[in-house]
Amino acid sequence: MRSRSNLFLIAILALISTPLVIMYVFQLIDSVSRPALGGFLPQTWELGNWRFLWETIDSARPSIWRVTFNTFVFAASTALLVCAFSITAAYALSRLNFPARRFFLAGLIMLHAFPTITLIIAIFIVLQFLGLYDSLIGVILVKAALELPFGIWIMKGFYDSVPWEIEMAGVQDGASRFRVWRELILPQVKPGLAALLIFSFLAGWSEFILPLVLAPGADAQVLATYMNAVIADDMRPDYGLFKAIGVFYALPVIAVYLLFQKQLMNIYGGGTKG
């Protein structure tokens, strides 16, 4: 009875999962093969799909390596900035007495939910004022700032779960609050910090709208805007090429996911951004 209803469940799950599985499978197949005209089954091996690795696919486009480097710098810098700002701010909110703490906490929760994308027009103009428009630094700052409420929220959760007594013991042992934070508390929230670092890196790696709007030039192009431009500019879609770029783009994501599945689930389960 139980196994029969399980089989039934599996059948339904398999059915609704089919589109996704087809997309994943053909994502891989099509990146190294060419289907018959008007069909979808692979006919011949086609390594030319990967030509973007060793040549510029058309004149105006920057090299993929340059773009990949940009993407890495973008993702890594945002992740580091988010982490650096979050570990201090979250600690203050979780543990320190300072004026208007209540107000900051309420603000944090609201910002955590607030749809940042609605601010993009104003941010676009702020960046122009600051002279950071169309530069990687500008997008990095914006992305880090927009991820910050989420990061602080997550880190605050981790700080909150460290027993107060550890902190009290440190103070009693004669250490200053800063030293207590640095030597006693920070080591306890390392797992959270690692999770946030990975999460922010992935978020930066995948980010599309911000670079598209705030840094449209070729110099600051990242993989998302690069890939989008390749797709948009093609008169006749070359899905072999698109998919090869896609695989290239997704490889680090998949690798990070496989390596840090547990930590990531922590954040996706506890946090809710996205």
């Binding site: 027993p163 007594e165 550890i166 009290m168 013991a169 440190g170 103070v171 009693q172 004669g174 250490a175 200053s176 006693l184 080591p187």
Partner: peptide
């Protein structure tokens, strides 16, 4: 607390 000379044993020991 840092400048008082007090040793405390907590209920949950609060070991690092």
């Amino acid at each position: 607390a840092q400048e008082r000379s007090v040793g405390v044993v907590f209920q949950n020991y609060a070991l690092y």
